[in-house]
């Protein structure tokens, strides 16, 4: 189970209205390398993991990603809550507005809704942890790209925090992979799937 804490992991306080920027950042909620896909990926992979260090890492990183989804949603909310129909039209946010008004709905920057295809679960510790290492790097690149496009310091600060978290998670998943390999046959890591073969 989970317990809610009534605060963000890192402060988000944005005064201006900027739907064009909101549309870009929304990708980190509903896009292929976004926080919702990440959270569901890690929390789903836990069940077939054979070692405690890895169960713990996936539980805690998956939980932290939920807090990141909340930060992204808060950024998008604050950038659009006072939007006028004219601003929606001028910024290109009007297409999203037709279906979702100023609600938070997970889509990519290109408008493609969140898809379960983004959630890699193979049921094999080596395959899944390598998926996670790649996922953290892909999310880091998305934050790099957002930071190339966005100048406002109030928006950049939380994005920089989230970018740094991707790097730390990559490090932790690397250690989880090391733990897995130490527990496996060092002459051939692929001899068995320890998540299945008994």
């Amino acid at each position: 189970m989970w317990i809610y804490e009534k605060k963000l992991e890192f402060p988000v306080k944005i005064g201006k209205t900027d739907p064009a920027t909101a549309q870009l950042i929304m990708s980190q909620l509903g896009g292929p390398d976004g926080e919702l896909a990440a959270s569901t990926r890690y929390l789903s992979q836990r069940y077939s993991m054979p070692w405690n260090e890895i169960k713990g890492t996936l539980t805690d990183v998956g939980t932290e990603e939920l807090a990141h989804a909340e930060m992204i949603a808060s950024i998008v909310h604050q950038l659009t809550k006072n939007m006028t129909p004219e601003q929606a039209k001028k910024s290109g946010f009007d297409k999203y507005f037709v279906d979702h008004t100023v609600g938070i709905y997970p889509v990519s920057a290109g408008g493609i809704p969140l898809d379960a295809k983004y959630i890699g679960v193979k049921g094999d510790v080596i395959a899944d942890l390598n998926e996670d290492l790649a996922a953290e790097q892909k999310a880091r690149v998305s934050y790099d790209n957002l930071l190339r496009l966005i100048d406002d310091p109030d928006i950049r600060e939380p994005l920089k925090f989230l970018r740094a978290r991707e790097i730390v998670h990559y490090q932790r998943f690397g250690e989880a992979l090391r733990v897995a390999q130490e527990n496996m046959d060092c002459r051939n890591f692929y001899a068995v799937n320890p998540s299945f073969d008994k």
Partner: peptide
């Protein structure tokens, strides 16, 4: 809380 989150993640593998 952030320092605790960070330390807990480290402790998971150490």
């Amino acid at each position: 809380d952030f320092a605790m989150t960070e330390t807990a993640l480290y402790l998971d593998t150490h």
